Amino acid sequence: MQLLSTRRRRLATAAASFVLVSVPLVSGLAAQAADTATGQVNTTGAALKVRSAPTTASSVVGTRADGARVTIVCQTYGQTVSGTYGTSKVWDKIKSGGYVSDAFIKTGSDGLVAPLCKGTTTPPAPTQSAKVKATIAAAKGMLGKHPYSWGGGNANGPTKGICCSPSGIDDRNTVGFDCSGFMEYVFHQGAGLRLSSTSRSQYADGPRVSISQIKAGDMVFWSGSSKTASGIHHVALYIGDGKIAEANRVSGPDIRIRAFSRNESGVMPYVVRPIH
C-alpha cells in the first residue's frame, strides 16, 4: 500500500507553531461574559428548532432560519447533540424564549460566551477512558461516509481539499478528509482536543511513547525509510486489538478500519498519546 503525504500547502508555514490544547467545558471567559451574547444559526439549510427545555425530546416552541442571528441570554448543559460545530452538551437560552443546541450556533468560541443559566449544574469532566472511547466512536462514525481529500477535513468535519497531491490529484471539489484532517476531527469530537493540521506537526502534539507500549487512543505515524520526523507522511488512530482507523486514498472506502502491524514499512518507533 502506498501511503500519501498529508502536507497541506495552505497551512504549511503555520502548522509547526500550532499546539494541542484542551477545550474545557467551561471557558475562563464565561466568568467575565457579558449579560448576553450573540450567535448565528448554521444548520447548512434546515430551520433550527427551538425547544422548551435543553433536550431534543422537549416540545418545539419555535424555529430559527439558517443564518439567523440570535441573542443568547444564558447557557446551560443538557442533552448531547452533534451538529455543525461538533458534539456539545451546551444549550443556549435565547432572548425570545426557548433553547437551541450550541452545536448549531456560531459564537466564535469553543467555550461559554454567556453566563450560566440559573440552576445549572456543571457536569463532571469525562475520564481519560471515556475520552478514548468517544474518540474511537467518532472515528467509527465516519467509516465509509466520505472520500479521501488531499488537505480536507478539520476539527468540525469534512471540507473541500486543495490542489494538488504528490500524484497531481486536484481535490478542491472533493469534500472529505485526509489522514491528519481525520485525526483533527476525531480527537476534537471525542476528547475536546485541538490538534495541529499536518501529520508531521501532529507528531509533536502530545507525549511520545514507545510503540511497544501502544494502546487504544494513540496516534501511529509512518515516515520514509530513514524513519525521521521530517519524513512523516501518514498518521492513523490505534483503536486496539491490532487495528487502526485511518483516512487514505485506497481501493474501497477511504475512511476505514484495517489490521495494523508494528513491523509495517516506515512505522515510526514512537506513538503520540494526546489523551493522557
Results as ranks from 00 to 15, higher is better:
229 A>T: 14
170 D>P: 02
133 K>I: 00
137 A>M: 01
94 I>R: 05
242 G>K: 01
63 T>E: 08
71 T>D: 05
30 A>E: 14
131 K>P: 00
258 R>T: 02
270 Y>M: 11
208 R>G: 04
126 P>A: 13
158 P>T: 08
168 G>Q: 13
62 G>E: 12
256 R>C: 00
184 E>C: 06
28 G>M: 13
98 G>R: 12
64 R>K: 08
185 Y>P: 01
200 R>H: 06
7 R>E: 14
104 F>A: 03
65 A>W: 03
125 A>T: 13
161 G>S: 11
64 R>Q: 07
159 T>R: 15
199 S>M: 06
6 T>F: 10
195 L>P: 10
228 T>R: 15
274 P>G: 03
15 A>R: 05
33 A>W: 04
260 F>C: 06
258 R>K: 07
51 R>C: 02
27 S>G: 15
164 C>M: 05
34 A>W: 07
46 A>L: 10
198 T>F: 09
77 Y>H: 06
216 A>N: 14
105 I>H: 00
107 T>I: 10
184 E>P: 01
160 K>H: 12
200 R>Q: 15
138 A>P: 02
260 F>K: 01
85 Y>E: 13
228 T>C: 12
11 L>S: 11
25 L>M: 12
257 I>W: 03
110 D>E: 10
95 K>P: 02
3 L>V: 03
272 V>Q: 11
32 Q>W: 10
261 S>P: 04
252 G>F: 12
224 G>D: 05
136 I>Y: 04
140 K>N: 06
206 G>E: 13
56 T>Q: 15
1 M>S: 09
235 V>I: 08
2 Q>G: 09
152 G>K: 05
15 A>F: 03
67 G>K: 02
98 G>P: 05
81 V>H: 08
70 V>P: 10
66 D>L: 00
165 S>T: 14
51 R>Q: 10
209 V>K: 13
218 D>S: 04
59 S>G: 09
177 F>K: 13
154 N>K: 13
259 A>M: 06
5 S>W: 07
114 A>W: 05
17 S>F: 06
91 W>K: 13
19 V>S: 14
210 S>C: 02
247 A>R: 09
232 I>W: 05
27 S>W: 15
194 R>A: 04
258 R>N: 01
2 Q>C: 05
99 Y>A: 04
3 L>N: 02
243 K>F: 11
224 G>H: 11
123 P>F: 03
